[in-house]
Design a protein around this nucleic acid. Structure first.
Length: 398
DNA sequence: TCTCTATCTATAGACGTG
DNA sequence: TCACGTCC
DNA sequence: ACATATAGATAGAG
C-alpha cells in the first residue's frame, strides 16, 4: 500500500522534510487519524495465540481494547484526535480503473490481469480485507470514540483523502497514518508511528513518531505539487502498478527530465525494455489524488466533548464483556486528562529540538556505527538506545 | 565499480505483575 | 526495570 | 492483516 519507495526517496533527497520528535510535540494539536489503519494494526497485533479477543457472541473486540487505551493516552498528552473512517472503497482499487478511463479496455484488462495476477490480486486482497472488518466492528469503533468525547468523521471514500482535506483547511494540524500516500493526497503534515510515542510500553521500544512536511519536501525535491503526484504514480501506487525497472530514483530523474507523467510514460514506452501497464490512464490516475471523493471541510463539524460514561460502559462492559474496573479506571483517567487537554498550546514552549535527522538513511547507519565506537555522550538520540533495546528484545523473544 | 532495483527476512498492541 | 502473561 | 504488510538488509542486474 502507499507509494513504493517514497520514504527512502525523501530520506535520501529531502531529509529536511523528516523530523523525529516526541509525541509531546503534538500537545494542543488536532490530528486527523486514519482510523482504519489504526484498527487494522490492532487486529493484527492483539490476539491470544491465533485468535483475536472476542465478546461472548464470538465477535472480535481486539480493536476496541486498543482504541480505548490509545484514545485515553492521546487525551492525556493533550492531543486532540479526530478519527476518520473509510467509506466505500475507491472504484479504481476494484480493478475498475480502466473502466472509468477507457471503458472499452476494461474487460480486456481484467482478463489480462487474471493471467498475470497483477492488480487482480490486489483487488482480491482488498475485497477480503473489507470482509474481515465488518461494518459492525467499524460502527462499534465510532460509538466508542464518540462516547469518549472524540469526533469520528465518516469519509465518503478513502480516509486518507479526507484527512488531507481536514489538514488543508486547518481543521487539523496533521494526518496520522502509516500510509505515505497521505502526502500525495496533499496533507501538509504526516505523522507516522505516532503510537510508538504514545503508549508507555511502546515508548520503551525506542521508536519515535516521525513527522513529514510536504512543503519542505516539495521545496527540497524541487517539484511542484502536480509533479510530485506524477512522481508518486510513476513509482507505483494503490491505483496502478509500478513499472518494472523503474524505482524511485529513476522515477525522479524521469520527472526532472519530462516534468510530466504522460511524457515520461511515453518515453518509457518507446524503450521496449520496459513494460508499461496498459492502459495507463494518466488523467484518471491524477484525478484520484487531486479530486478524491471527500466531504468538504466546511461541511465537517468537530466537537470534543465530555465523555459519556454510561455509553462507554454499555458498549465495553455490557455489550463486550470488558472488565468493569478497568473501564472505570480508564474513564477516570480520561476525565482527569481533559483538564490538561483544555490548556492552550504555547508554541514558544516547544523549541525546535534539532531532531536526530531521520533523513539520510545511510548517514544514520554510519553515525550509529561511529557512535558505537566512540561512545561519546552527546545528545542521547533515540536512534542510539534503539539498537540496544531492540537487540535485547530479539534475544528475549528467542 | 557503483547505483538502483528486486528479493529476502524479521517483526507486529497495551497493560499490570512478579 | 524487564520479560511475560493476559486482556475478551 | 500473523492464511499479511512493512521496512531494512542484501543480493544481483545493468
Amino acid at each position: 500500500m502507499g507509494i513504493k519507495g517514497l520514504t527512502k526517496l525523501i530520506g535520501d533527497n529531502a531529509p529536511r522534510a523528516i523530523k523525529q520528535q516526541d509525541a509531546k510535540a503534538l500537545f494542543g494539536r488536532k490530528v486527523a487519524i486514519d482510523a482504519s489503519m489504526c484498527i487494522y494494526q490492532l487486529l493484527v497485533a492483539v490476539r491470544m495465540g491465533a485468535d483475536n479477543l472476542t465478546n461472548e457472541d464470538g465477535m472480535v473486540t481486539s480493536h476496541l481494547n486498543g482504541l480505548f487505551y490509545r484514545t485515553i493516552r492521546l487525551i492525556e498528552l493533550g492531543i486532540k484526535p479526530i478519527f476518520v473512517f473509510d467509506g466505500k472503497p475507491p472504484s479504481m482499487k476494484g480493478g475498475e480503473l480502466a473502466k472509468r478511463a477507457e471503458a472499452k479496455k476494461a474487460a480486456e484488462e481484467a482478463a489480462k490481469k487474471a493471467e498475470e495476477d497483477g492488480n487482480l490480486e490486489l483487488a482480491e486482497k482488498f475485497a477480503r480485507r473489507v470482509n474481515r472488518i465488518t461494518p459492525e466492528m467499524m460502527a462499534a469503533c465510532k460509538t466508542l470514540v464518540r462516547a469518549m468525547g472524540v469526533p469520528a468523521v465518516e469519509a465518503p471514500c478513502e480516509a486518507e483523502a479526507q484527512c488531507a482535506e481536514l489538514v488543508k483547511h486547518g481543521l487539523a494540524y496533521a494526518t496520522v497514518s502509516e500510509d505515505m500516500d497521505s502526502l500525495t493526497f496533499g496533507t501538509n503534515k504526516l505523522v507516522r508511528q505516532l503510537w510508538s510515542g504514545v503508549s508507555a510500553s511502546a515508548q520503551k521500544k525506542g521508536h519515535t513518531p516521525t513527522e513529514f512536511s510536504l512543503d519542505v519536501l516539495l521545496e527540497d525535491l524541487d517539484l511542484k505539487m502536480h509533479e510530485f503526484v506524477d512522481l508518486c504514480i510513476l513509482c507505483g501506487c494503490d491505483y496502478v502498478d509500478g513499472i518494472k525497472g523503474v524505482g524511485v530514483v529513476k522515477a525522479l530523474s524521469l520527472m526532472r527530465e519530462h516534468k510530466d507523467l504522460a511524457k515520461a510514460v511515453e518515453a518509457l514506452k518507446r524503450l521496449d525494455r520496459y513494460e508499461v501497464p496498459d492502459p495507463y490512464p494518466v488523467d484518471a490516475l491524477r484525478e484520484m489524488f487531486f479530486k478524491p471523493e471527500i466531504t468538504a471541510a466546511k461541511d465537517v463539524s468537530l466537537k470534543w466533548g465530555k465523555p459519556d460514561e454510561a455509553a462507554i460502559k454499555k458498549l465495553m462492559v455490557e455489550d463486550n464483556q470488558f472488565d468493569e474496573t478497568k473501564i472505570a479506571n480508564g474513564i477516570k483517567r480520561l476525565l482527569l486528562a481533559r483538564k490538561t487537554s483544555n490548556q492552550v498550546r504555547v508554541d514558544s514552549f516547544f523549541k525546535p529540538k534539532s531532531a536526530p535527522n531521520a533523513g539520510a538513511l545511510a548517514a544514520k547507519r554510519k553515525a550509529a556505527a561511529l557512535a558505537a565506537k566512540s561512545k561519546g555522550k552527546k545528545r542521547r538520540s533515540p536512534g542510539l538506545s534503539k539498537g540496544k533495546i531492540m537487540k535485547k528484545g530479539k534475544l528475549g523473544n528467542k
